[in-house]
Amino acid sequence: MNTPAINALRSLIADDGGTLLDEWLLSLKAAGGAANGRVNENELRTQCRDFLAALQGAFESDAPTDTHTAAYEPVTAILDEMSRSRALQGFSPSETATFVFSLKHPLFARLRRSSKDVEALGDGAWALTEVMDSLGLHVMQVYQTSREQVIKRQQEEISELSTPVVKLWDGIVALPLIGTLDSSRTQIVMENLLQSIVDQEAEIAIIDITGVPTVDTLVAQHLLKTVAAARLMGADCIISGIRPQIAQTMVHLGVELNMVSKASLSDALALALKRTGRMVVPRPIASKS
């Protein structure tokens, strides 16, 4: 393909005497693309230069207006890297997208200067707009995906942080639950508990729900399933700290927890110690003599 519009595109960067990079950097900084100096000046310059070189390569290809061809792979690779690293560093969407969009102004200015007539300018502008918009969208897509990955990882970290399984004694572990339990969090928590039973060789696991404000049917079922699974593995569960309202709700919902339940964590621990053949007694006061 060799339409005038495409020839115009090809000459844009090729005929540049090296000033395009400087103009772009100025435009980029003016638009906040350097994020108040958070991006290293030299790094940005290298990134921009590499990008221009890659873009020039893509313009020379058979279909320079189609950004989904193999010729554009070096271009999108640079954009992928840029968007991903900025998304991870907490840049805003516009700070990220500006990288591409700030190049529009210097490129359009060049196009205007090199176009011989209005028709050529119109065609060239359309071709250039198509390319730049498509690249801009690509940047946003990668940015979005990277942000979603960050959020997913944080959610996982939070749910792990908030559910530590603690060893109370040899063979006794406890899971103090705090906050509202939803179905997916309960599932993760319970899987952690069962794994801890294996790791600690715990014959008794105490699930303390003092810090849980409400329990719905689904969560109650998860609790029941966990108790059943622990038993299959050879460990017993004790539930402690069921609030009166929760007990009432559960009876009304028809999910009576058919399991050993104690009022407080300390009662549960006392029972666990007793079951594992231990006793806690006051120490006799030593006589002073």
Partner: peptide, 14 residues
């Protein structure tokens, strides 16, 4: 029955 793994126990209950 001895040593049932956690994923196996969860699945059996399910």
């Amino acid at each position: 029955v001895v040593g049932m793994r956690p994923p196996v126990a969860i699945t059996l209950v399910e």
